Amino acid sequence: MNPPSARPGGSVRARAVSAAAAVVLTALGATALVSCDGGGDDTGAPTFSERPTAPDTGGFSGELPSGVASSAQEAIESVQASAASAAASASEREAERKASIGTEIERNRQDAENALKDVKGRGNALGEVAMTGKPRADTGGVLTVVLNVTNKTDEEASYAMQVDFLDASGKVVETQFVGVEDLEPGEREQPLVISRQPPEPVLTPRLTKAQRY
């Protein structure tokens, strides 16, 4: 006599209960993993919330934090100070350059005057110096003449010239001295002589002396 077999219905119910229990355990395990994730593990698994939290804009004033603003202001002031210092340095250099030029012109004038002090007559170099005028339109109305000095000798030479400015009556109103130094044979230079008198009345320039030495 064969042993009685299990009822089919009981077996099906047992499998269904087991499967339901497995699903419940799996869900509970997943929930436990999510709830235990404090963000400090090294798994890198992202966490999610049902709704994103809106940013708190109450602290946004539209102004830079005081520390950043202070640093920016210091940087601006530093740049401005550097620019001012560079401008001042450039101005000082220009002033020094003009002073140096003025000193050189005065030295040249004094040397020429000293060289002509004991010269009798009109000097030994009138044939080596020619005088031409510059248009007043190019000099702002200031009377300016150009001396064309050419060393026509076979040796190096220096030259001293005296230019007088005369009024309509022939009276000397102004005298200027100018020199050219160490001119090589055949070499030419063109120094300027500028009157310090006003444009009116009109004066006439005259090459009074020219000495080679």
Rank of each mutant, 00 (worst) to 15 (best):
D42R: 13
A54I: 09
E50D: 03
A90Q: 04
I76M: 00
S89L: 09
E96Q: 15
E96M: 11
D42N: 08
T43R: 14
S70F: 01
T57A: 06
E77L: 09
P55E: 08
D56V: 01
S91E: 12
G67T: 12
A83W: 01
P46N: 07
G62R: 07
S66M: 10
P52S: 11
A88K: 07
A75T: 07
S66T: 15
R97I: 10
A72K: 04
D42Q: 13
A75G: 00
S89V: 03
A88F: 06
A86C: 03
D42W: 13
T43Q: 14
T53P: 03
S85V: 08
S91I: 07
A69I: 10
E77C: 00
E50Y: 04
P55S: 07
D56H: 00
A45D: 14
E96C: 05
A86W: 00
S70M: 09
F60T: 09
A84N: 11
G44N: 11
P46Q: 04
E74C: 01
D42P: 01
G62D: 08
S78P: 02
S85R: 13
T43G: 04
S71D: 06
A75K: 06
A86V: 11
E92S: 06
A69F: 01
A45R: 13
S89G: 06
G44I: 11
S82M: 07
G59T: 15
A81F: 01
A90M: 05
F60D: 09
P65Y: 14
A75N: 12
E92L: 11
E50K: 05
T47K: 11
A87D: 14
A84W: 05
D42F: 02
T57Q: 08
A88S: 03
A81D: 11
S78K: 02
G62N: 02
S78Y: 07
E94M: 15
P65G: 14
G67A: 12
G62H: 07
A69S: 05
A87E: 13
E96K: 10
A90Y: 03
A87Y: 03
S66V: 11
R93Q: 12
G67R: 09
S85E: 15
T43I: 10
T43V: 12
E92K: 00
I76E: 00
A45T: 15
E50C: 01
A86H: 00
V79E: 05
T57V: 09
S89Q: 11
A69H: 00
R97Y: 15
A81L: 11
E96W: 06
G62K: 11
T57W: 08
S82T: 06
A84Q: 09
P52G: 05
P52T: 05
T47M: 08
S91T: 14
R97W: 15
A88P: 01
E63K: 15
Q73V: 01
G67D: 10
Q73P: 00
S66A: 14
T43E: 08
P52E: 13
A86N: 06
R51T: 08
I76G: 00
G62Y: 03
S71E: 05
A54W: 07
D42K: 03
A83K: 12
R97K: 12
L64S: 01
E94R: 15
T43S: 15
F48Y: 10
S49D: 10
R93T: 13
A83T: 00
A81W: 04
A81N: 09
A45F: 11
F48H: 10
A88I: 01
G44F: 04
A95V: 07
E92G: 10
